[in-house]
Every structure is written in C-alpha cells, then in structure tokens.
Design a protein around this nucleic acid. Structure first.
Lengths: 333, 333
DNA sequence: CTGAAAGCGCTTACAG
DNA sequence: CTGAAAGCGCTTACAG
C-alpha cells in the first residue's frame, strides 16, 4: 500500500498523453515528436517512474530474466563462473534468478523445472544435467537451455564445457612424470558423468605409461566414508592421487596430514579447477585449470546467442579444450 | 509460440469449471468440494499446469521474490553466505534474484535500485550499504530491506552483522601475544565502514598493550599499488600484519614470499572470514571467524521476519558477536 | 504521429 | 460452494 507505485497512468495523466504514447516513448518505438519525448522524460524523472518488468513481461512474452541453476555456490568453481556469467547477462539487460535443488538430487528434475518455469525466464543456464526423463520436457518448453560445465551432447542440448578427459590425462601424465607408482582417483559421485570422464582420462594416461589404476583405488567421496578411503590409501601406500576437484583434494590432504603424510613429500596429489587462482591463494596444490574465465564467458555468450540468434547459427556443444596443468607444492617437481 | 503455455483457462475448460474456482483450489482458499479438488488436481497434472508467478504477482502484489544485492561472489564470504541465505528463502517459497553493481560503486545507488525495483521484489537483502542519498528512497519504497554483513544502525535500516571492532581486537591481541612488535593494517577501501571498524578495534587492542599502529602503516589495497605497500612493509620491518580479509592476506603473503619472507616464521599475518573452513582448505592463515553460518541464517531470518511479521516485532540491528580467532600457520604459536 | 481497445494470466472482491 | 466481472501494469495490434 505504502509503495509509491508510479505507473504509466500517472505519467500519462501528468503529461496529458495516453499511456500508449508514453509506453512508445519509453520503449523507443518509432514515431513521436521531440516535444512529446521531452515531456515524457521529464515527467518520469519527476515522479520517479520505474517500469514493472513483470507486467511488461506478461504482455510482451519476454521477461529479460535468465534462470541459473546451480547446486553449490560454495565451491569457487560455481561462484566464480556464476559471478562472471551473471555480470555478462546484466550487461545485456538480463537479470539472473537463482535456483538450486538444495542438494536434493544432482540433476534437474521436474520439481525444479516447475519452480523455474513459474518465473517465465527467457533462458535457462544450468550447472546440473537434466534427469533422463526431463530432456524432452525441457526441449518442449522451447526455452533456450544451456548446460554449463557439463557435456550437452548426450542430451542434444547446447553445452559449454572443457574437455574433461583431456584434463584427467594431464593429471595422469604429471603424476607419472613425477615418478609416483601407485595411483588412486577420488571422485565425487559414481553416476556423475564429468567425474567419470576425468577418471577415464586419468586411467588412459596411466595405461599409456604402463601404469595401472586399480578398481579398488577408485573412490567416490560423496558416497563413502572418508576414513575408509584414507585407510585404504595408507595401507596400500598409494602415492599418486588425482581428485575430482580442489576441495576434495584439500580434504584428502588434511586427512593424510593427520596420519603424518605430507603432500609433495610423502605423496603427490592433483586437484581440479585451480580455485587457488580465483581466491588469489598461494599455490598449495597442483591442479588442472580449465580456463574458467573463458569458459564462463563462452557459457554466457552461448546463452545470449540462443536468445538473439536465428535458428541457423545456434551454438551447440562448445568444448573449449583449454585445460592445462598448474603446478603447486602438492606434487614433487 | 512453441511454448506450451497451459493456463488456468485450459484447466477450466478441461474440468468445466470457472477459472476462479480452479484458482481457488490451487491456492487452497476455503470452500470447494472434494470432488472439484480432485478434478482440478487431475487436470493440472495431465496438462502439466505451471502457475505464472509474474501474472500472479501483478494482481496479488506479492511476487515471492527476494532481491539479493552483492558485489563480488568470488570472495567465499559472499558465496558461502549467499548460498545459505538463498536456500533458506527457497525453503520458505521465495526465489532469489541476484543483482550486482558490477563493481561500479561500493554502494547501492539509484541506478541499481531502479533495476531492483523493476522486478517488484517482496524484499531486498543487500551486502552493499546504501549511498547517502538513497536511504530515504529505500524507506519510501516500503519494501523490507536488510543490510547484511554491514552495520544497519547508521541508516536506521535492519542490519545483520558481527561486531567488527571486536574482531579487530582479537587480531591485535593475538599478534601482541605472539610477540610481534611492528604492526600494519591492510584494508580494502578507505571509505568502507566495516574496513575502518576492524582497523579501529585492531588499533585499540594494540594501544592497550602499549603498542602502536602508525598512520603510515595503514594501507588500502584497493586504492594503492601492492608493490608500494610491500616495499614499505619490508623497509620498515613490519612483522605483525592484520588484513581486512583472507583474500587480501593471501595476496600479501604471496608478495612477501616473493621477497623471501615466510608467514609464521619471518612475520605474522592475520586475515578475516575464515574462508579456509568454507573451502575445507588446510589452515594456512590465522583468521577471524565471525560465525558466517549463523550470521547467514540470522540474515535470512531477519528478512523472513520482516516479510511476515507485524510492525511491532520487526528485527532491527542484529549483532551476533560470535567472532573468534582461529589459528593457522601464518602466526607463530 | 497519437489514442482507444484488447489482452497477457492471474487474483480479488462481489454476487448468487 | 461456484461464477461473472474487474483490474494489476504493461504492450500490441488496430484505428484514425
């Protein structure tokens, strides 16, 4: 009630024009006189008019809103890229509305899509992959959908991601170069495609060097007890560890240190994402940097292209391939 | 066009009821028969009805949207707390829409408020303080406004923050306890109130121990060249450094290491925010932990209270006071 | 170049 | 307990 809602009607009243004319001026549609323009601009400034984007969107069909679906803003890979992406959207006049599934699942499911759709976004950029049954639903909405940081190809949806297998290979090659001999991979979820892609690249690189990644040395930290994993690593004298991301690597390093094992001395460990650089932290761990800044820009641009582009030049599966290994103190040089 | 927009009209048609009745059932307003309810529910499920919150908000005056204004999601203090806050809002049926000023200013200005207001949020939670002239405007909107992580009192707005001076004192006392003798404070912006509060607490603690914080040893890293700061620290053999936040501390540590000085050995340094714990990183630096989890919950709860509460029990300036020092390797024990 | 009318999808009074 | 009407604030055809 107390909200001083200045509407087009007020501007129309003040200027003696119709609300249509006012709307036309504000939206810079052709055909109005300089005089009318000045009157409208002055009245808007004086009364402090602010458009209601929801009402505007209801009629025009475009809300200039993009939904961003993430699962965990705490991991700097998400926050860093979300920051870049949302700023880019803002530059182009789109606001970002955030959705998370609150850790319910690692996928976009119907319940999540419902709350997203209720906001009538012009586009959806998701860090989560769609649940199997949701792909057709998503396509049926007709809303531009970009899968970010995950492979879009299996879903036939636009995806922007780095070559995960390649990143895994870099880790494997480096740990071999360092002279380690017993390897382990510590992933997040067993069913998580990106997680398995990195593992596959890692195993392939080891195989090429005549080394092996034993099945019993492949772990999924979101599904297993940490202590069990650490026990196994210590018991089997594993000395070359590759982790799905930097945070997992930190956790493992801390647990191993509690057992008296120091990274870079007693064993080597490689993370993923190079969050150290994002945080401007010292280079503690050796990690794989997939060029997150460029990746984020590419993700935002893919979305913007889908929003503005003709059907012909739709971006499809963008694979930036930029990953490189960044050395830290967690592997011997 | 291709969007399969199922509306209330479609459900009404399908069930042979009026759209009013359908709306009433969906909003669980009193007075409808079990039979009608079942018909409506079935039709909604079959056709895949999803409400249009924008249209709903236009009529009802509540969009169930909360605007979050942040400046930098990369700093884990922001991303960590934003994650917690937005999840809490989601639990209560509110979606979060993100706004940043893209680094234009460190304040909420009119341009930013315009784009926020255009979305008709039910509430606004801001990490940024309002520009001087904006306070009346904000109050005039009548929209619940919470300043998060900053002191709300100077603006007469609801604020949720920790006692910053107290945090600064903890840092000062600890550096004295460690036996350091030449002190410096490295802040962010000179005009940033929180930054100065921490400095004041730090200086006060030093004074109580008979130590001094020289004006020439107070720096603002966002306004000065890093190399100049480092030169001065080295030249004056400063050995007790307190930084406005952990990220600044990391940057300083790295620069000093390039000069051959090791934190915890050659000098001591204390950061702020305990982002290490958020990232599950090893405890590199000694830092001030203000209980960010509780702070975030308190921030979300303050917002929710303003949204639902009577005018009487409005929360005002919540000061959680929980800060404590967490030791890391960057100060000698 | 400007205005009157219709309508986006919903909810809120008001009748019955 | 259900429905017809009005209206939230805007934009889009359509007249003039």
């Amino acid at each position: 009630m107390a909200r001083n809602n200045v509407t087009l009607k007020d501007i129309a009243q003040k200027t003696g024009l119709s609300i249509n004319t006012v709307s036309r001026v504000l939206n810079k549609k052709p055909y109005y006189t300089k005089e009318v323009e000045e009157k409208v601009t002055a009245a808007c400034k004086e009364l402090g008019y602010i458009v209601d984007m929801n009402a505007s969107g209801l009629r025009s069909g475009t809300t200039r809103t993009i939904a961003i679906i993430f699962d965990d803003l705490v991991n700097p890979f998400y926050s860093y890229t979300t920051d870049i992406i949302s700023r880019r959207f803002e530059e182009r006049g789109y606001n970002s509305i955030m959705f998370s599934n609150n850790g319910r699942t690692a996928y976009v499911d119907y319940e999540l899509m419902r709350s997203v759709m209720a906001r009538k976004p012009d586009g959806i950029l998701s860090y989560l992959e769609p649940e199997a049954g949701m792909v057709d639903f998503i396509k049926g909405t007709g809303i531009p959908f970009v899968i970010f940081g995950r492979d879009g190809a299996p879903y036939g949806l636009c995806g922007v991601n780095a070559d995960e297998e390649f990143g895994g290979r870099l880790a494997g090659e480096h740990l071999c170069d360092c002279g380690y001999g017993k390897f382990a991979y510590i992933g997040s979820w067993r069913d998580f495609k990106v997680c398995r892609d990195r593992e596959r690249g890692f195993a392939a690189a080891l195989a090429e060097r005549g080394e092996r990644l034993l099945p019993e040395h492949i772990f999924f930290i979101r599904e297993e007890e940490l202590t069990g994993i650490i026990d196994k690593l210590v018991a089997d004298k594993v000395d070359g560890i590759f982790c799905f991301n930097d945070i997992i690597a930190f956790v493992v390093m801390e647990a191993l240190e509690a057992r008296g094992l120091i990274a870079g001395e007693d064993y080597g460990i490689v993370g993923y994402d190079n969050i150290q650089q994002m945080m401007r932290m010292p280079r503690i761990i050796t990690t794989i940097d997939m060029g997150s800044y460029d990746l984020a820009q590419a993700g935002a641009d893919a979305m913007l292209a889908l929003l503005s582009g003709s059907k012909e030049d739709k971006p499809a599966f963008i694979n930036t391939h930029r990953s490189r290994l960044v050395r830290g103190r967690s592997t011997r040089m």
